[in-house]
């Protein structure tokens, strides 16, 4: 019988990471889309770094940063009385950094394509900022939001290097799906590795399919209305 704990842990990690990223990433993406500051390219580059850095490099810095001697790890330890590395919370922080560009970039693109005059129209009609955001902005960026969510979620499920560096391989605590597969292969248990891998492939397919059928529908709709 295959242990499903790594699968559940991966889903949990991806869900929590996505929730945190949407909360942090949405205002960041909005700011990047609207700002006229000359520092915008700098912030954009920093946000995009996780795309190009090898996961081990990112994982190394995160390990140092989140470790007991690190700035964030030390603060966490002082506050909660336990370390951040090799825990689920540590994995969430690391995954957020790792998957940040996958959430921020689609959202930023969606905000940039937004018809800003509709926002201004809502404001002149007396709508508050929160109401404008919920009723006017969100419906217009829903496709970007969906893309950001699917990519952010899927990317977190698939991470390996960063998780291994920061979380290690503790079954039930930090042993996510990709690491469990690696361990099964190391132990030459190809059957178990194959089963987990096929679950991952199937889940990714099911996750991405709605995204691309959405895009197809939108294209079709556009052709009809044009």
């Amino acid at each position: 019988m295959i242990d499903m704990a790594p699968f559940t842990l991966s889903i949990q990690l991806a869900a929590v990471t996505l929730a945190v990223l949407l909360i942090i990433g949405t205002p960041l993406a909005w700011w990047l889309a609207m700002t006229r500051t000359p520092f915008k390219p700098v912030v954009e580059t920093v946000t995009a770094l996780p795309l190009v850095l090898p996961p081990t490099v990112l994982g190394f810095y995160l390990l140092v940063f989140l470790g007991p001697q690190g700035w964030a790890g030390g603060m966490w330890n002082a506050f909660f009385g336990r370390p951040l590395t090799f825990t689920f919370a540590g994995l969430v922080v690391a995954s957020c950094v790792y998957s940040l560009p996958f959430v921020v970039q689609p959202l930023q693109g969606a905000f940039e394509r937004l018809d800003r005059r509709t926002v201004e129209a809502a404001l002149t009609l007396g709508a508050s900022w929160p109401r404008t955001f919920v009723q006017v902005v969100l419906p217009q960026v829903r496709h970007g939001l969906l893309t950001a969510s699917v990519l952010g979620f899927a990317h977190t499920i698939g991470e390996f290097g960063v998780v291994l560096m920061v979380g290690g391989n503790i079954p039930g605590e930090t042993q996510v799906l990709s690491i469990a597969i690696y361990e099964h292969v190391e132990a030459l248990d190809y059957a178990a590795a194959g089963t987990l891998s096929s679950i991952l492939v199937a889940a990714s397919f099911v996750g991405l399919l709605p995204l691309y059928s959405q895009a197809r529908k939108r294209r079709k709709w556009r052709e009809v209305s044009a």
């Binding site: 018809d115 005059r117 509709t118 201004e120 129209a121 809502a122 404001l123 002149t124 009609l125 007396g126 709508a127 508050s128 009723q135 006017v136 419906p139 217009q140």
Partner: peptide
């Protein structure tokens, strides 16, 4: 702008295409 009581008709109208006509008119 929310506190000014302005009716503003934008160039190209800036209508809310995701809402119905009635929803647009009722918005304010």
């Amino acid at each position: 702008p929310q506190k000014r009581s302005v009716g503003y008709v934008f160039q190209d109208y800036a209508l809310f295409d995701h809402m119905s006509v009635a929803g647009n008119i009722a918005f304010g």
